[in-house]
Design a protein around this nucleic acid. Structure first.
Lengths: 342, 342
DNA sequence: TTGTATGCGTTATCAC
DNA sequence: GTGATAACGCATACAA
């Protein structure tokens, strides 16, 4: 306890004292308030710099009831789509003077609930969230909404009504694009590896798949349809199951790229030629799809644009405090990126 | 202004009033203070739940001078090593009751400076940082250190003395392992694509490279040594330059995996057989290296362990307030992962 | 074991 | 334009 080296933080009181001004004036000067003489402002800024003053955001937020901070909840930052979207979100928020608190739920509903609580405790000005695969009950976001904190769901969003704004990719179109592309290249026996139907993404991508199959009058083989967590291992198992029987597909559409990669590696290992004997389409346009041999056709989701759109909508929401609960629902475009696997 | 739907946040005063207790008791109960009757505690917790009470972290932090929040600055969350390390850090911090604010510098020194300021303003309890490629002056972290806020640098760390704790991988050993592996598989003409020498990583990996070359008495061809930002495009250009001349290398060691991938793709395009005519080793063991054909040998950095170690050290630092400035420097292990490219 | 009173650093509301 | 002062919500020293 003898060697306390901590320099005490300087406060506006220190600046006020040094300049023989009142703390109120200092505060105004630092906030660029109009009712303060230019000369005074300059003096304050100079002294602030000299003292190494930094506004204490705790105190400021407590008093002003505004944190200038946005909370973000995602399953995992390592997923390509999210990493890109987050970066865009952070950069655009920064332009508007907002900070971002990034939290990972690890696809655990319990963790997501806890994080929503923490963000509420932090009194963030808004929350942006992509839910876990298994979130069906979105109650834990209600408290935020009730207190007037805007919530924007993106990518993985509630399937039932919500007072929150929703921004999602056009997944049913993505599923349709992928499937019809396979059909148009001549495939007639198409497998589909999808995710848990508790999640809107896979429900929608599946619906696109079925729509295309029906439209082109292609029979669906139920043994080739999987709804499972889209891990590498699960996809390999599905492939094994599919290729055990005598009748085998000539194409496979997977609802993410990890599964597509697993499918391709399986095919290469057992000597199935891609794209000649089997065509493959993934989802998300993860950069990994382009470095495989052969490269894998996938669906681009434009994560950067999604992030930009999220911030635009959010700024609108934060601007007019008319809490007019104008619930929006926005669909962002997708695009087929054709590669060597088809 | 008429339709204000905001429910007012409830405070400990609301709980106190509802329970006919003093706010102090409520505060103590919520903080699990020993001097509070079990029964009272239960009543308080029940009422808190009923009122949807959530501690206001701004107020709490302001009063207690502790935010329970750690700030993190990284160049980019999308880099594999960092994504993994961050996840580990976040999970371990969470076990200790700490939250994490993740910030990206985008490898911009100006942004990094700004972020350090914001984290200071946020009065985070500590800062963990991996610097930009071009940070040579680490002054912007001084204010944090002077105020007794622990700073831990990891991965990309200051090369000069610092009062902060430093945790880095054994990069010179990594460079040595990669290079000696190539030599031991029979390579005699080895190229090396490294990063800017302003960054400790590339300086160390290079020194490992030269050490191995010298030890095995292999001559270094200066035309095959590059110090450049390790982007895909830069690596392609380097490859073009290398393979323009008549004498070509039989191996290449790149200081990251993106460059290794670029090298492999270049080789495949121009018909150089890997590993027969050219062997390749990358760095970081990015999952992409294992899905290429052929898969690429790389250096594993154990990001999960690094993250764990960071939190361990940090908890130590936060425990004893004896600000004894015990500057530590920790080296974490690396390992060669041999694959088909060698 | 509980209550009273004070202050954390800032901003907002008055006055002047 | 500037100053005095209260208040934001909570935690703690001190009193009871």
């Amino acid at each position: 306890m003898s060697s306390e080296k901590k320099t005490q933080d300087s406060t506006i009181l220190d600046i006020a004292e040094a300049l023989k001004l009142s703390p109120a004036t200092i505060s105004r000067a630092l906030n660029n308030h109009p009712y303060v003489k230019e000369k005074t402002k300059d003096k304050v800024l100079a002294m602030a710099a000299e003292l190494g003053y930094r506004r204490n955001l705790m105190a400021s937020s407590l008093r002003s009831n505004k944190t200038n901070t946005i909370g973000l909840i995602v399953p995992r930052i390592s997923m390509f789509f999210h990493a890109e979207a987050i970066t865009a979100i952070q950069n655009h928020l920064h332009e508007h003077g907002y900070n971002l608190i990034i939290c990972q739920s690890n696809d655990s509903v319990a963790m997501e609930k806890q994080l929503a609580g923490i963000l509420y405790s932090s009194r963030v000005d808004a929350v942006i969230a992509a839910s876990t695969l298994y979130t069906t009950d979105f109650n834990h976001f209600d408290q935020l909404l009730e207190n007037g904190t805007p919530v924007i769901f993106y990518d993985r969003v509630p399937m039932s009504n919500t007072k929150a704004t929703v921004i999602k990719g056009d997944d049913s179109r993505g599923g349709y694009l992928a499937t019809s592309h396979l059909i148009e290249t001549g495939c007639k026996r198409i497998a589909h590896i999808s995710g848990p139907l508790t999640c809107n993404l896979y429900r929608d991508r599946s619906s696109g798949f079925f729509k295309a199959m029906q439209q082109y009058n292609i029979p669906v083989n139920e043994d080739w349809i999987f709804y499972q967590e889209l891990t590498y291992e699960n996809a390999r198992q599905a492939m094994r199951k599919i290729f055990e029987s005598s009748e085998v597909p000539d194409a496979i559409f997977t609802d993410n790229d990890t599964s597509a990669i697993a499918a391709l590696e399986f095919a290469k290992e057992v000597g199935i030629s891609v794209p000649d004997e089997l065509k493959i389409v993934g989802y998300s346009n993860d950069p990994r799809t382009s470095i495989m041999t052969p490269s894998i056709t996938s669906i681009e989701q434009f994560p950067g644009l999604v992030g930009k759109r999220i911030v635009e909508v959010l700024m609108d929401l934060l601007k007019d405090n008319t809490s007019d609960v104008k619930t929006q629902s926005i669909i962002t475009p997708v695009q087929l990126i054709r590669r060597m696997s088809t």
